[in-house]
Amino acid sequence: MSMTVKGNKYLSCFAAGLTTLHKLSLESQDGNETLSFQPWESLNELFLGNYNSIVPVGAKEGEQSITPTKCQSLEISKVFPSNTSLWFWKCFTFLNSLCIKNWDSLIYWPEEVFSFLNCLEHINVIECPNFLGSKLESTVGTSITEVLLPKLQCLLIDNCPNLVEIPKCSLSIQELDIQCCSKLHYLPEWLGNMVALKWLKIWECESFNTLPLSMGDLARLESLLIIGCPNLAYLPEGMEGLKALKQLSMRECPKIRALPEGLLQQVKNLNQLWIEDCPHLERHFRKYGKYRHLISEIQLTNVGEESTSNLLKDLVLAFPSCKNTCFSARS
């Protein structure tokens, strides 16, 4: 059973009495309402939108212990149950997917909140204009930070224009997807510790200019997509360690003049190669270019206007986007 309630607090109270709900969407009409919240045992997917604040049903905040829900997917838009509302997050200890959208009050990676969410596998942070990322010094200490989100597999950060520091991730993460973050300049050196990482995408980050030297430690990396980064002028040495790399896409990075020797060693082992709007690289990979001999065995190639297939479609299908994990309880 699914239910959508928009702008009617009485219906919201009615929904709280239903015991067979599996999918629920609650949204304030004007953004001035307070949501009286209690978990539903049967609930699997929940969307909360545009509330001024969230308080527990029947008690003031902190006065009531709430039984955790078995909810797997939570999307919250334009409302932020802050660190002082830890009772709320304790309801979601079984949560698998979290989508945070349009939180103006989200500034730093909420480590204290995430300390309760040990089952999380997918996190999407979308259109949070004031989100800066991690603090320079962790508020909970290095030892705790290292064990936060022990099951996290996928992190998407999309359209957060003030992001400057990627949050430190669990060693279990397999996909890191950063899109439209105009102030992000670099990925940190600790990225090389993410030994389970399989997919890395940097998309439309106009200030981005540095990949870490530790990139070569990502021995399980299968897909590397760098698109729309006009200030990226070089890739680091040491990338011969990318033994599992099968997909490489470099697009709209006009300052890159060449690939490092270590990465060139892996090119002949690729299944898919896409080079576009990178004029120096395109010249090297075209007929008579110095890299041309490396691509004769690659199944799918797109170099400028030269293409062996509809590579755009193939690459999109091959790259598992975190966005697909962000459910919509409103659908």
Rank of each mutant, 00 (worst) to 15 (best):
A196R: 11
I166D: 02
Y51R: 02
S28W: 00
E111F: 03
S172T: 13
L312Y: 09
F114T: 01
L242K: 05
L270M: 02
E146I: 04
V267F: 02
L312S: 12
V195F: 09
I202Y: 07
D277L: 08
L200P: 05
P68N: 09
D277K: 14
L163I: 01
I298Q: 03
T308A: 05
K198Y: 04
E127H: 11
P129V: 01
L245M: 08
G141Q: 02
P129S: 00
E33P: 04
Q29H: 08
N159V: 07
M1G: 13
F94Y: 14
E165D: 13
K23G: 13
K287T: 08
E63V: 05
F37L: 04
Q266W: 01
L148T: 13
L11I: 05
F285K: 04
D30W: 04
K101Q: 14
E112N: 12
L156T: 11
N52Q: 15
L311W: 09
S28K: 01
S42L: 01
G133A: 01
Y108C: 03
L312I: 07
K135S: 07
T93K: 10
L95W: 03
R283Y: 11
P212M: 06
G304E: 05
S28L: 03
S307M: 06
S309T: 10
Y288D: 15
Q72A: 14
T325P: 12
T325Q: 15
L74E: 05
E206L: 10
N130S: 11
R251A: 12
V57S: 00
Y10C: 05
K101S: 10
K243E: 14
L11W: 03
G17N: 12
P39G: 11
L11A: 12
G31M: 00
L211M: 15
C253T: 09
E189R: 08
K6Y: 08
S42E: 01
S249A: 15
P279C: 06
F92T: 05
L117N: 07
L48F: 00
F116I: 07
Q174D: 10
M3N: 13
L26Y: 08
S28R: 01
W40P: 02
N83W: 05
P39S: 09
V125L: 07
L156C: 02
Y234F: 12
I256T: 03
L117V: 04
L211Q: 11
E33H: 05
N83D: 15
N52M: 13
V113K: 02
P188H: 04
A219V: 12
G216S: 06
I126Y: 10
G17Q: 12
W89Y: 00
L184E: 07
L176M: 09
C71V: 10
Y108P: 09
T93A: 06
Q29T: 03
E175R: 14
G216A: 03
